[in-house]
Design a protein around this nucleic acid. Structure first.
Lengths: 177, 177
DNA sequence: TTATTATAGATGCAGATGCATCTACTTGAA
DNA sequence: TTCAAGTAGATGCATCTGCATCTATAATAA
């Protein structure tokens, strides 16, 4: 349980609480909850570090994420609602965030050709450049942080497991049942 | 690459962008970035589902997380700054969130005995009850969601890998270098 | 066609967030 | 001691967020 000797630990424990997952909980359910909890905390731990990195001085992490998602569109352009599927923020928030990013000259908008209601977004050259700059720093931080913790094989395992989670959850999302 | 036949995919791809991690990037660095990216997206995918669950009607997910963290304190009480270490929100935000939770009767505050500046927080009985209620639903959703995706052994792998990340990152945080 | 229902995105508004700063207290050095 | 520097938490303020709702367009049914 990795408790440092001589430390008066009064803070929250890193083991799963009995009030949520009691010892009488069915083991399979308990394990699933513990795995999720651990995944979530790992994400928080890494994110806390990332957020404070000087590379995110220019742009909030959520805004960077929008630019990043835009780099992944084969045509360069995406529908606003499509973009929203990969983010945690709400539709109105994305709408206004894109507005701000446009004002900063980082993205551009145009009407969707096939749907008069729709809006398409793409990076501008400036936006693409900024994304690359921040992304490069981002990658360096991650490598410095995670490199000493996980070996190549373990990184591959983690990648594979989390990819399946993402795909599985997204599929369930679109499934009509 | 799991692309559905007959689908005009115009949205963001699920493979890592070349603009951030180019094919010439050192493989180890590339893999680390891909693993983090995948972990992050998996977290987003699960979180999107969780957030919409009716069990979070009563309390925002961030507020639930505070209650949850409080259940893990051996003594029941924690220092505000200690609590803040496990969360993504800023110190002023936590300060006000606790204020609101106190107003709702879910947590209680008292002055720290050993430090006149400090504030200690603990759940009230009502708070503990609500945490249990939401937590139980939470666990059910997670199990329904992740159960069909990962097997027992895989969940254990995931748990182990993410635990190491959390510990490793937190240790690096406290290290003085 | 026309009426109904659904969807894309924008907007008003109340409330939450982070940053900078402030006060109060503590620590450590002279 | 005394005083400078550091830390805990609160607060003013500008900004961002989500919810509910609105408009405009699209899809579906009658």
């Amino acid at each position: 349980m990795t408790k440092q000797a001589g430390t008066e630990n009064t803070g929250p424990e890193t083991t799963v609480s009995e009030s949520t997952v009691s010892e009488t909980t069915e083991p399979a359910i308990r394990l699933t909850a513990e795995a999720w909890e651990s995944l979530f905390r790992a994400q928080v731990a890494v994110m806390r570090r990332l957020r404070n990195d000087p590379s995110f001085k220019k742009l909030a992490i959520g805004e960077y994420d929008v630019l990043f998602n835009l780099t992944r569109c084969p045509t360069g352009w995406t529908r606003l609602n499509e973009l929203n599927r990969n983010l945690l923020i709400s539709q109105p928030s994305l709408s206004r965030m894109v507005e701000r990013l446009e004002a900063k000259g980082l993205v551009q908008r145009k009407q969707a050709p096939d749907d008069q209601r729709g809006v398409m977004v793409a990076l501008t050259d400036t936006g693409r450049e900024l994304q690359r700059e921040i992304g490069a720093a981002h990658v360096r931080v991650i490598h410095t942080l995670l490199g000493p913790i996980l070996q190549t094989g373990e990184l591959k395992q983690l990648l594979e497991l989390t990819q399946r989670i993402r795909e599985g959850v997204d599929d369930a999302e679109h499934a009509d049942y």
